[in-house]
Amino acid sequence: MRLCIRFLFSSLLLTLLVWSSGIFAEGLGPSDYDRSSWHPIHYKPVIDNAIDEQCLSCHRDILDRKVLDQSPAGVKSSEVMAWYQTLTTYEGEQETFHRRHLTTSLAKELMDMKCNTCHQGNDLREEATIPPDHSNRDTTLRKSVNPEICLMCHGANPYKRMGLPKPWVESRDMFQGDCLLCHAHIRTVRHQVNFLKADAIEEAAKKDPDVCYGCHGGRQWYRISYPYPRHAWRGMSNVIPDWAKDRPTESEARFQIKTKQAAK
């Protein structure tokens, strides 16, 4: 049923696309390149309402691209596996970064990411020269995505705040490597953002603790943790610990789930 609705929805989007993408015409030349590059869709506020199909009408290759069959030195893609890929949740062939986040089966099962979930306007000048935003506030000296967005999932476990004696690597045996040993009771209102499927994640995690580890530990990129908003959970203490006093109780507005359906 849900699938069906989604299918309907995306065909609706496709129809919209035909209407709304006047700039993305056939036979584009160098002249159009500049104009397209600086099209308002690449910047706020328009990018906030950009739909994936609009983005993909020019950047389709981001999903079409496959990894090389073998590296220049002859390393076959099918024969390598990074440590995190040994998790049971990792299936299928080597895939590109974008496909792992958007199109592979696990991604589709647990997430609902959009292009603009991460991409909030790639300032051309950032990689070339000067940011056009003279207030000079919202740019990071990086190519396209602010890594704070990545940090939401791919940060470290703040083991001290979690009350663990040692970092998770060393403590995990104590907890049988199972996050839900504690988190069936603590901070149970989680993943309440519009780019994740909270219910599906909970279901999957019950079956296999690797699911948690797949994003939060296994693919941990960064050495700090994300200061998550404190969604109240059943049984949460009324006393707010010092470290959490500034924390918001809701996610950033653009990630909030508009209908309350999912929370149920």
Binding site: S71, P72, T96, F97, E127, K143
Partner: peptide, 18 residues
């Protein structure tokens, strides 16, 4: 060692500094 790279571009995404 780019001769071992298969072009998955994960590192590109992970680096906070581009």
């Amino acid at each position: 060692d780019s001769t071992l790279c298969i072009g998955c571009r994960r590192c590109e995404a992970a680096c906070p500094f581009g």
